[in-house]
Amino acid sequence: MPPLLQSRSLRVYADNLEYLDQTRLPQAEQWQRCDTPDAWQSAVKNLAIRGAPLIGLSAAFVLAQTAARHPNGDWQSVSDRLRATRPTAVNLMYCLDAMEACFEQGVAALAERAAELFAEDRALCQRMAERGADLLQSGDRVLTHCNTGALATAGVGTAIGALAIAKQRGVALHVYVDETRPLLQGGRLTAWEMADLDIPYQLIADSMAASLMAAGKVDKVMVGADRICANGDFANKVGTYMLAVAAHYHNVPFYVVAPYTTVDPACASGSDIPIEQRDAAEIRGASGAFGDVVWAPENAPVWNPAFDVTPATLVTAWVLDTGIFDAAAIARGEHCQGRGER
Rank of each mutant, 00 (worst) to 15 (best):
A280C: 12
P253Q: 02
Y201W: 11
D264L: 07
K220H: 00
A281T: 15
D178W: 00
S269W: 04
M242G: 13
P253E: 04
G232R: 08
S287N: 04
K167N: 14
I228M: 06
A246K: 07
N231F: 02
M222V: 11
D178C: 15
F254I: 12
A162V: 05
C229R: 08
E276L: 07
L163C: 09
T261P: 08
Y249E: 14
K237E: 05
S211W: 04
A230H: 08
A281E: 15
V221N: 10
N251D: 15
M194G: 05
P253D: 00
A215W: 02
V238C: 01
G285I: 08
G186W: 05
E282D: 08
A280N: 12
A191N: 09
G224D: 06
A235F: 03
A230L: 13
I204Q: 03
A205D: 00
V177W: 00
A215Y: 03
S287R: 15
G216N: 11
Q202G: 11
V294Q: 15
Y249K: 13
G239T: 09
A205S: 13
E193P: 10
G216C: 05
G232P: 02
A286G: 14
G186C: 03
I199M: 13
M208Q: 15
A281W: 01
D196I: 00
S211F: 08
V223P: 07
L184W: 12
A166T: 08
P297F: 02
G186Y: 07
Q168K: 15
Y201Q: 10
Y255M: 07
G239Q: 01
I275G: 10
I199S: 13
A268P: 01
F290G: 12
P274I: 09
Q168G: 08
V223T: 12
N251T: 14
G161Y: 00
E179S: 07
L173Y: 07
Q168N: 13
V294C: 13
L183H: 09
F254S: 04
L197I: 02
D178E: 06
V257S: 00
R284D: 14
A280M: 12
P253G: 06
W295R: 14
W295M: 12
